[in-house]
Design a protein around this nucleic acid. Structure first.
Lengths: 203, 203
DNA sequence: TTTAAAAACGACATCAGTGTCATTTTTATT
DNA sequence: AATAAAAATGACACTGATGTCGTTTTTAAA
């Protein structure tokens, strides 16, 4: 006499909503996306979405949530396992192919929009700082590891280089969002690549 | 029998509104600023503001308008007058003191927010591209001038280096908006400074 | 001082989006 | 099949912001 819905079912629905939401967020940006846009995209009703998420912010945070923590953990593990810091750094900066390519992380500008437009909200800005900090640490750890192995001879402190990588990448993401092709993200990634080699004293 | 208000008066009022608006925009960000916030800050009524601007976007575009064109023109003139490209480049990147300092252009993140959150609006994105293009040209011209004078020996095309300066600066602006001190903008500006010397082949 | 034009006011109608909740539908278990 | 719990629906009340417009106030010229 008890119809416990399978966890699997709930998870699937949740994922459906998040996928639809991601599509819409990329299309319309964070601020201009409404709950209506989302439930129409999933093919659910208003209440249907509210069953799973309590508002747009909750939905968005779920969407981007954990992603960063995952990659941080993955990086820590890789370092632990003795993966080459230079290879690892390239992977984190440019993806598995370890090489600059056309810019494609279309959610990145939305994430930045989310944090920038919400920067006056105290709780959000705490969250933003945490995320930023985690990103810095990730790169910093890789660089420190490489330094201690004698692979890198950094011209600036690992923290500063880590922050520079993040700023530069964020800048490319933002500019791509607003000027598209014009930004020549591939060429810029190549420049970033060259700059990092210089900053880390790699031949 | 005709009370033509002095242009001076109108200009002053307009400027008052823009100044108040700038303050509020910096405080609350673009999206979260309302017309009400603004007329309360100036000490005017709702209708009062609408007398001068037709909506928030119009107001914001007036605020940032021309600024970029002005600096572009100023740069073109300076090059024409034979100003040293390296000095000029440093001025444009770091202000008159020509040296990296704490990040302080508090309107910059608001400008980025404006363009990023409005990036789906066709007319706005045209405007954004124009602005971006103008910025690229400005830096590109300086670099080309320096190259032809034999002061710079660029490792990448002037256009790519120009775009990199913009991306990096935008990145610092965005990150500062959302993580504040944490971003260590001064250190990053120093790194940017060093990187540019390297990219331009300056001893 | 009168006067007519411009500036400033603020109430108002309108709109878009939000989150809720009583009701209906679907589901898994008995 | 019967049933009870969970999921899904969509109408609803509410909110906050927008731009307008008839009215009042201020202004500078006559």
């Amino acid at each position: 006499m008890a119809p416990k819905m399978s966890d699997h079912y709930k998870q699937k629905r949740r994922k459906d909503i998040l996928e639809a939401a991601e599509k819409i967020f990329i299309e319309k940006g964070y601020e201009h996306t409404t709950i209506k846009d989302i439930y129409e995209e999933v093919g659910l009703s208003r209440g249907g979405v509210y069953q799973y998420f309590s508002n747009k912010r909750d939905l968005f945070e779920s969407l981007i949530g954990d992603k960063l923590e995952d990659i941080y953990q993955l990086t820590a593990d890789a370092l632990e396992d003795g993966e080459d810091p230079w290879t690892l750094l390239k992977k984190r900066m440019f993806g598995e192919e370890q090489h600059p390519s056309e810019y494609n992380d279309s959610l990145a500008p939305v994430v930045l929009e989310f944090f920038v437009s919400g920067r006056t909200d105290e709780s959000l800005s705490v969250y933003a700082r945490d995320r930023y900090h985690l990103g810095v640490s990730m790169y910093e750890n890789i660089i420190q590891q490489g330094e201690s192995q004698g692979i890198f001879t950094p011209r600036f402190s690992p923290g500063t280089i880590a922050r520079a990588i993040i700023s530069f990448s964020d800048g490319i993401a933002v500019d791509s969002a607003l000027a598209g092709e014009e930004v020549q993200s591939k060429e810029q990634s190549e420049l970033l690549f060259d700059m990092i080699q210089y900053m880390l004293g790699i031949r």
